[in-house]
Structure formats: C-alpha cells, structure tokens
Write a protein that binds this DNA or RNA. Structure first.
Lengths: 215, 215
DNA sequence: CTGGAATGAATGAATATTCATTCTGTGGCG
DNA sequence: CGCCACAGAATGAATATTCATTCATTCCAG
C-alpha cells in the first residue's frame, strides 16, 4: 500500500536536473549549483519567510559561496520569483492538459483532485511554498501570470458546473476557494504530522470535497 | 439586509480602548498610542510580513515616534506576539463558552460557524493576521498556548462527533483542518473582492461545510 | 516646577550585493 | 606526455544600506 511520508526524511522537491536555466543565465556551466540554490531557498523561505532568510544562509545551505548566487540570480527577489514561477508552472502543467479539458465535469473534478494531491504530496515543500507566498508583494508579473492561469481554469470549471446546475447555486469563486481551502486543510493535516496520508484518505478527501459543492 | 464590506473602507479591527495594557506596561498613561501602534502593526504585518516591516514604518503609520513604540513593547517580537496573543484570545473567547460546550453536536457546529464568521468578518485584518502568522518561528509560548487552546477544542469536538458516528469515519484532525480551510476559502473569496459576503452566503457556507463532514 | 511621556537623531548590528582575487578544467604546443 | 596560457566559474572579504533599538533631550499636564 503506497503511502506518503510525513516526517522529515528527504522530500523530493528538488528541481529536476533538466530544468532549463531559465534563459540568459551563464551558458557553459554543467554543475548543479543553480538547483542547489533553488532547493536551499525553497526550504529556508518556507521555514523563515522571504525577508527572514539572509542570502548568506541560503548560500551556506546550498553549499555555495554567497557571491555565487548572483551568478545565477539577479537579486534575492529574482530568486524567489524564479522559485515561485518555476513551481507554479509545474503545477499548472500537471493539473491541466488538453485531455482534461474535455472530460465530463465530475471526472474533471476527480482528475484535478488526484493530480493536485500528487503534486502536493510528492513536492510538499513546493506546495507549501506556493501557498505561503502567493499573496506576497514581491511577486513579479511572470509569477502573477502563473497564478492567473491557475485561477482562470478554476473559475471556468466552477462557472460551467454552476450553469449546468451540477454544483450548488453559489458564486463560483466562493466554491473554488472553499475547495482549495479544503484541500489545503487535508494537506496540512499531513504536513503537521497529525495524519499519515494514504491514497485512501486522499480519495476520501475528494468525496468530502465533492459533497461540499455538489447540488 | 446586512452585508459586510469588501473594499477598503475602514474595517473595525482596532483594539478596543478597554484592552488592559497587557500587564507591566507603563501605568499612568491615558492615551490611545498603544492601540494605534497595535493597529498599524496589524495592517503592516498583514501586507508586508513581519520581517518585511521596519519599525519606523509602524511608528509612522501609528502617528508616533519610533522610540515611543518601545515604551509599550519590549521589542518587535514582543509587538507581534502581543498582537497575535491578543486577537487569538478574543477569538477563543468568542468561539467557546460554557453554554456552547453542552449543546448537541450539530448545534455546536452551527454556533461555531456563526461565531467564527462573525469574528472573521468584523475583524478581517485580525483574522487574516492570525491565519498568516500562526506558523511563524517568532511566536512565543503565550501565543502558542492560545493556538493550543483553540485546537484542543476543535479536536475534541471532532473526536466526539466521530465516536457518535455523526461525522465521516476519518481522522478528526483531518476533518478539523478541512473545515478550517473551507472557512478560510470562503473568507478569502470575500477579502479578495470576488464575493460580497452576506449572512445568506455564510449560512450556505455552513451547509457546505456540514456536507463535507457529516456521515 | 517637576516627573513621566514622547521624541527622533544616533548607534551598532545585520544584510544584500559587489568585485578583486583565486581556482579549475580545457586545449594547444613543444 | 608535460607544460602553459586562458576563460569562465567560484569565492568571500569589503561595501553600502537598512533597520532595530537606545538615549539625551524636549514636551507637557498637573
């Protein structure tokens, strides 16, 4: 029986080696330093917040000299945004594809729940990071665009469901955010070590979520 | 028809004038400076985070000199904690009383939802603040104790409901956090300006929430 | 007058960022 | 094979800010 770990064993939220150095970064390097920096930042920003983590600490955790970070990222802000934008785009890619868009409503809901769970529980720190920082003032346009992409799909789904009277007669945005919060609650019960998450529980969570919105 | 404001008109999250200066603060003062400082901090910490807000800015927003803050609070940390502990204790007082504890389960759920909504929508910044900061490293024992008080009641409720087979057969902690997230989602839909919250919608939210957990 | 309250410039500790220097690996050449 | 430039990568001490906190001074109510 597959189950996810809830303790502090290494979680796989590391940036896959294949991440294209986003664009104009130094070209000739073959090392994994960029990834190690992103990784360290992910963990530290989660634990201590953006303004609460000094760059030298990120450097130390990444096993890199302070100055090195600036070979890969313009600034501290560029670093959070690279992190945010990268993980959010992964999430969006994971959640939505052409196939998904043309399934029936209930199946879309199911698929979305499953995929979201898959993302959140295999990249717990990344998911926590996105949740914690989506409201921050230092996000740039690219990051915000990624949030928009996500929300537009969610709203469209619930608008459609509302029209077809599949879901309760409530503002779609409210339904969307309630489901999002519901999921985050489930996620938290796992991350806080209160519940050992299993595929069965995730499935049960989906039943709860559907009961929340169905007419 | 009562409705809550979602725009930027002044919200009433100010600390009531009667707040007893928590304990050992300077005694003889009659001014409202302490409250103005707490107020300014509440808003700024919400918008820019704890480490993201300089004390001089808090002072400016409070209409007070920088040094004055230190007549009322030992340090910046003491300030967040005063804020956190104060509002959390108000929340706890609002939610739970002797009467509440001996109502039937479903009624307790209803009352809790209503009271929580009342707190959150009359003190939106305070509620957002508590949500945003409950996980922070700089909370002191007193603040954490307030969190515990809250969670113990929640867990007890869902444990009892689970025993009596009123709710789904799932870990009580998971149910509790899902409901909490659900509420937060509803709250957010209002705060983000997507939904104009009304007592009817709040009631509808409760139905959703109950559908989530009932067997 | 006087003592507590308030002020805000000054202090010192952090912290983001820079940059002169060192390292490393690659390829040409004797 | 060994040696030698050389370029890009990495370093980390130094710099320039920013910021929490202090405290000598001023204000003001009684």
């Amino acid at each position: 029986m597959l189950k996810f770990e809830s303790d502090n064993k290494p979680k796989d939220d590391s940036v896959p080696a294949s991440v294209p150095t986003d664009d104009d970064e130094p070209v000739g390097h073959r090392g994994d330093k960029r990834e190690r920096i992103l990784d360290a930042a992910l963990e530290l920003f989660n634990d201590r917040g953006f303004h609460g983590t000094p760059m030298p600490l990120v450097a130390e955790q990444a096993g890199v000299a302070a100055g090195t970070i600036y070979r890969y990222f313009e600034s501290k802000e560029a670093l959070v945004n690279a992190l945010f934008h990268y993980w959010y785009s992964v999430l969006n890619r994971d959640l939505f594809d052409e196939d998904w868009a043309q399934r029936p409503l209930r199946e879309r809901f199911h698929l979305h729940w499953e995929r979201l769970a898959n993302f959140a529980f295999t990249h717990p720190r990344a998911y926590a990071f996105l949740n914690l920082h989506f409201h921050s003032t230092y996000l740039d346009d690219e990051s915000r665009a990624e949030i928009m992409r996500h929300w537009e799909r969610g709203e469209a789904f619930f608008a459609e469901a509302s029209e077809q009277q599949v879901t309760k007669n409530l503002p779609p945005e409210m339904l969307m955010l309630m489901i999002d919060g519901l999921f985050t609650g489930m996620f938290r019960s796992h991350v806080l070590g209160m519940v050992e998450m299993t595929p069965e529980l995730i499935r049960a969570g989906e039943e709860c979520a559907w009961a929340t919105v169905r007419r």
